[in-house]
């Protein structure tokens, strides 16, 4: 299809104008100067408005807090990435009251099992955005993409020190331009739809529930 390419580009070039580019003022997207407390409050407010649940495990041992929550919710298991920092800590402190399942093979090797699983998947986050109420996930070898997509419950660990005011701020601080992973995700709640008469329903294709576990570490 090189012909199509040449034809399209030459048509576009025929009338390309050499005007100076319009000015872009990004000021409106810069940091808002919110305090740590305000950032957390805004994040919670936005995310809770779309049914996200929070578990405050600051100052506690978070793997135990997660385990207790899973038992209390009667969830049958937790899938995790065994090679991540989170995974190492999780497995070393797990008392096995709830089965811990490592995501340690290619998805195709256990697709049916993964899709039939009724429990939760746990992932780390790279921080969060207070203004939009979003978690930041860099997926990859240690934490596959389906971990936060296929299980009906997604548990995300958030170090509250990594919440920033705006999306632009996070993007610049973390130098996304030079570090784009295979799949970068912003997640702002459990899966939802309003396609039937504009009535909100949760858990249409992705997770039905999203639990954010607040910590002061990674």
């Amino acid at each position: 299809m090189t012909d199509a390419r040449a034809a399209i580009l030459s048509r576009l070039r025929a009338t390309e104008t050499k005007a100076p580019p319009p000015l872009q003022d990004f000021q409106i997207l810069e940091s808002r100067g919110w305090s740590a407390e305000e950032k957390l409050q805004r994040l919670r407010q936005q995310m809770e408005a779309v049914h996200t649940e929070f578990l405050d495990a600051r100052g506690q041992d978070w793997p135990t807090a997660v385990q207790n929550w899973l038992s209390q919710e009667k969830l049958p298991g937790l899938i995790y990435g065994p090679k991540s920092t989170l995974g190492a800590k999780l497995s070393s402190q797990w008392n096995n009251s709830v089965p811990l399942i490592p995501y340690d093979r290619a998805m195709e090797q256990w697709k049916a099992e993964l899709f039939a699983f009724e429990g939760a998947g746990i992932t780390a986050t790279r921080g969060a955005i207070a203004q939009t109420g979003s978690l930041i996930l860099f997926t990859g070898a240690d934490e596959p993409r389906t971990l936060s997509l296929v299980p009906p419950v997604h548990i995300a660990l958030l170090n509250v020190g990594k919440i920033r005011d705006t999306w632009r701020q996070v993007m610049q601080e973390q130098a996304w331009v030079n570090n784009m992973p295979t799949n970068l995700l912003l997640i702002s709640g459990p899966s939802k739809t309003a396609d039937i008469e504009q009535t909100l329903a949760y858990g249409v294709h992705g997770p039905k529930r999203l639990l954010v576990v607040l910590t002061d570490e990674d």
Partner: peptide, 10 residues
Amino acid sequence: PITTYVNMIS
């Protein structure tokens, strides 16, 4: 303010 998912594929 944003959709539930922003999916960036590279």
